[in-house]
């Protein structure tokens, strides 16, 4: 039981650590296009997460009966079905959001994060882990797109979410397409910088290893194995 919990937490955190947008640099199209306002970005993030979770669960559930030769077309059909369901539902119950996201809701079909997770994770793991993986990756995607949108909206339009104007002379280029590239580039650089800092600060255990595992006090929870 403990093992399952640990593994699911690990899977969920992988979505943040190996963030699809900021680390793996995939699924950039909606991040660049739907990040002019934080509201749109949040809507896009939630819609993509929903499709990701549903397709992960379904792919994982029928992975034993999918012949490997035609797995990609089947994944696409599954993803397209869920995307269209999201599109209809949004049009019916959230018409305003659907109007501002426009063509990018149907374009979730070709979002490579979703296909990549179906292919590399859901096709090889059980339903529960695939569900957690979908949640983690979707969460990572949502955080990334909302971050980009917050910066762009604040600098480019001068407000955050639906607030009033906070700065009087916003920098227009930030809500134009080049602004998306600038903000995304800076965010990726920031993530790399933090990653490097964390690596440098990690203590180097290898330098003073004991002669064998038997005599070591930390042997019960140590991960390093010394072979004599």
């Amino acid at each position: 039981m403990k093992n399952i919990i640990n593994k699911s937490i690990e899977t969920f955190l992988a979505g943040l650590k190996e963030n699809p947008v900021l680390v793996m640099l995939i699924g950039l199209c909606p991040v660049l296009a739907c990040s002019t306002t934080a509201n749109d970005a949040l809507g896009m993030g939630i819609a993509a997460t929903f499709v990701l979770v549903c397709s992960n669960i379904l792919v994982s559930a029928i992975r034993k009966i999918i012949p490997s030769e035609i797995r990609i077309p089947i994944f696409i059909v599954i993803i397209a079905t869920f995307t269209t369901i999201v599109d209809y539902t949004m049009k019916a119950y959230l018409p305003k959001l659907s109007e501002s996201l426009g063509v990018f809701v149907p374009l979730i079909v070709v979002n490579c994060i979703i296909l990549a997770r179906a292919e590399s994770f859901a096709y090889r793991n059980n339903i529960f882990l695939s569900f957690i993986d979908g949640l983690g990756m979707g969460f990572g995607f949502t955080i990334a797109i909302v971050c980009v949108a917050l910066v762009r909206q604040f600098l480019g339009a001068g407000n955050i979410f639906n607030s009033a104007k906070l700065i009087s002379n916003p920098i227009l280029i930030m809500i134009l397409p080049p602004g998306a590239f600038l903000v995304l580039g800076c965010l990726v650089a920031l993530v790399k910088y933090i990653e490097n800092k964390v690596k440098q600060n990690q203590p180097k255990v290898i330098s003073n290893l004991p002669s064998s595992c038997e005599s070591c006090a930390k042997k019960s929870f140590c991960v390093i194995k010394i072979e004599n």
């Binding site: 012949p67 035609i70 089947i74 059909v77 079905t81 269209t84 369901i85 049009k91 019916a92």
Partner: peptide, 24 residues
């Protein structure tokens, strides 16, 4: 296999379509 998957997908889509169309 592919036909069955597409059939199920089509059926579920038509269900959602008929449910949401009047609202839209």
């Amino acid at each position: 296999t592919l036909s069955v998957v597409c059939l199920i997908s089509g059926l579920s889509l038509s269900y959602f379509y008929t449910r949401t169309k009047p609202v839209i």
